Amino acid sequence: MLKRAALLGLMVVATPAFAEDIDYSGCVSMVDRSPQTAERKAAEWQTHGGGGAAMHCHALALYALKRYDEAARVLDALGRNRDVPKGERAALFQQAGAAWMLSNKPRDAVASYSSALSDLPNDMATYADRARARGLMKDWKGAEADLSVVLGQDSNRADLLVLRASARWAQDKKADAASDIVRALEVYPDYPPALLERGKMKFSAGDNVGARKDWQKAASSGQGETAADAKRYLSSLPR
């Protein structure tokens, strides 16, 4: 769920002529109870001087309704409002990026995350998020660069080591990719995503026995997409 931080720079309460009980916290609470009602109320509130607070509540309601594309557009528009304090603009762009990702628009997500980094250049979580978006675009060089920034600050992120290994492998940097997997398994022994990637590397090198062993372990200990991918790879191996 998107972060529900108050927009301190743009808190505007609706006029009594519209609805005395509508304010940011009340609107956000309404998102939990009835996102449809919150979406309608927030849209009305915007037309009655609700400003940034109304826009943000509207985005939260759209997100809750899984209208991710619309939510991202509202968040991006709000982030571009120069009256919003810099730190809050970055948070809005981060939220827009998350919504773009759920809307399967990684290129737009990259743009939003880049805007967030312009205002908050040392935010490692945003670098990691942008790397994931770049990976979906098959911008492997960009993904590797972003992941290297984060891993330069914390070399014990097994999840990001696996992602960088994948990006490096796609660029035919096989030795560097293998090194990342070795490091990931040092940090987190038998880490299912790392086993999945190592199995792919072994299979590429013709080591079907080694690949099978890694994928079997990933399938049995992994969850979700990792386990499903491992089972799919296993089914493709010759008997």
Rank of each mutant, 00 (worst) to 15 (best):
Q94K: 11
V84L: 04
Y68S: 10
A17N: 13
W45N: 02
T126N: 04
S118E: 12
G26D: 08
A170D: 06
D108W: 00
P193T: 03
G51W: 01
S179V: 06
P121T: 01
L75A: 02
Q46Y: 12
D32S: 10
M101Q: 08
K200W: 09
P35Y: 12
L147N: 05
K200C: 01
K66Y: 08
Y188I: 06
L92E: 04
K231N: 04
L237V: 11
A54K: 05
W169P: 01
L234S: 02
T126K: 08
S114C: 06
S204A: 14
A175W: 11
A205P: 05
A61S: 06
S148L: 02
A72M: 11
I22T: 01
P85L: 05
S166L: 07
A77H: 15
D139K: 11
V150L: 04
G222M: 06
D172T: 12
A175V: 12
Q153M: 12
S221I: 04
F93G: 02
V31W: 00
G210E: 02
E88S: 07
A230D: 12
L2Q: 09
L117V: 03
L65R: 03
A227M: 05
K3Y: 13
L147F: 12
D76H: 14
A14V: 04
Q171G: 03
R130Y: 08
L151D: 00
L62H: 00
A167E: 07
D129S: 14
G52A: 10
R168V: 07
D69I: 09
D32G: 11
G135Y: 04
M30H: 01
L147G: 11
W100T: 05
R80L: 15
D83G: 15
K41Y: 13
L160M: 07
Q153N: 10
A5S: 13
A184K: 03
Y63C: 08
W140C: 08
S179N: 14
A167Y: 10
L185T: 09
L65P: 02
D21S: 11
A194L: 01
P192I: 05
Y24V: 06
N156D: 14
A54E: 01
S25M: 12
D146T: 00
A91K: 10
L102C: 09
E225A: 12
V28T: 05
R212Y: 05
G142E: 12
K3F: 13
V84D: 02
A128Y: 00
D214T: 03
E20W: 10
N122R: 14
A219G: 02
A218W: 00
A125G: 06
